[in-house]
Write a protein that binds this DNA or RNA. Structure first.
Lengths: 211, 211
DNA sequence: CTCTCGATTGAACGACCGTTTAGTATACTG
DNA sequence: CAGTATACTAAACGGTCGTTCAATCGAGAG
């Protein structure tokens, strides 16, 4: 029999979970190996013993979160990363650590976070292209830039969740927040903000000038 | 004659500028007092001598940045914080340190950053109300939430400038980026993203259900 | 001139950091 | 059974952290 039967559900995974919690809450630099060890109920030496270094532990946490994110993609063709995030947002209590950590990853500019964001933009771009092709979405002068904007608008509640929650008087990312932002977001994406094209035309004119 | 004639333009201000640069670039926790001292060309002890502690230095940097931000508001009635930020974005080279630091402030959830964001939301809410009253902007089911969304969308390029720049192949916040995002942003705010209200109506129906 | 006081430095302090090491307990292998 | 590999701890190491302290310098006051 192997000594580590499932390679997980063990001390090692408890350490990783503790690290994910603390990295997400306090950030990488502000989290000490000793505090992770304490949260996991082990010694600091054991953390290093299992993961080699704090940096390698971070890399493993990153990989774990990315895997978690991809897991919920489902099997159908429609199943993309945004849908996965939608699933998570609808079951907040279960996925809060994952989402919190995701926000940190995107902020820290970690390797994994960068690649994840690139994937998100690519998926969004495809989705927007299909929307335009199907006639349900407006066309644009700069499809890639619009995909970047829509993507960043989408991850904004996760990345800026602290400020977002504070302004709504909520203790963190709550279902109430998600529900309340749904209509205004869709209103913006349906009717826009401006009632005519005055500002847009002015900008077009101005940009044509100094090109 | 006083020993510190203008109370600034001295070593003290050089230390503060160095701190702003490094806090903005690396974050508060990742910046050491010694590195600030080196950047300013002084000893670490002198930094503490002038500001009392690293935390008090941060508070003074916060206050300085907020003052810098308010300075550009101009005198006319239209002069609000957003206009000030617009001024800064149009003269990037001069205001880059200020804008970089501003992004950090909003992320760190510092006291000053929170208050600044509250002010921005309030100003945005007023601006949107006037827009609706003047008939140039769409109305909304949740004015405050829309103001929050529009505000956060507005600061997003500053807060997420690293990712934003990386995805456009730029080295940082550049005039090229600002120019390129102008049209897609205004397109979204003018025509929206969806060509009809299918999604919006569906969401309205769904929310009416589980209220 | 002396006295005083703020600016400034370099060394030192104690705390905490990530990591290493030596050692113990345990459980599988042959 | 002895042998070996692994989980794990406690202590220690070297380094960096924010901060303190004693000493020096220079300029203004009397």
């Amino acid at each position: 029999m192997r000594s580590t039967p499932v390679e997980d559900a063990t001390t090692r995974s408890r350490i990783r979970d503790a690290a994910i919690t603390l990295f997400a809450r306090d950030g990488f630099v502000a989290t000490s190996v000793r505090s992770i060890a304490e949260e996991a109920g082990v010694s600091a030496g054991l953390v290093i013993h299992h993961f080699g270094s704090k940096e390698k532990l971070r890399a493993e946490c990153d990989a774990w979160i990315v895997a978690e994110l991809m897991k919920n993609k489902g099997g159908v063709d429609e199943g993309n990363l945004s849908a996965s995030m939608q699933v998570m947002l609808s079951d907040l209590d279960q996925y809060r650590p994952t989402l919190d950590y995701l926000g940190r990853m995107l902020l820290d500019g970690s390797e994994a976070g960068d690649r994840l964001l690139d994937d998100l933009v690519k998926l969004t771009e495809t989705m927007l292209e299909e929307g335009v092709a199907n006639g349900v979405m407006q066309s644009t002068s700069d499809p890639y830039m619009r995909a970047v904007l829509v993507t960043l608008h989408g991850v904004m509640p996760i990345v800026l969740q602290r400020q977002f929650a504070r302004m709504l008087g909520e203790p963190g990312l709550t279902a109430t927040m998600i529900r309340r932002m749904t209509l205004p977001s869709l209103e913006l994406y349906t009717h826009g903000l401006y009632r005519d094209a005055t500002m847009l035309d002015a900008a077009r004119e101005a940009l044509k000038g100094n090109e």
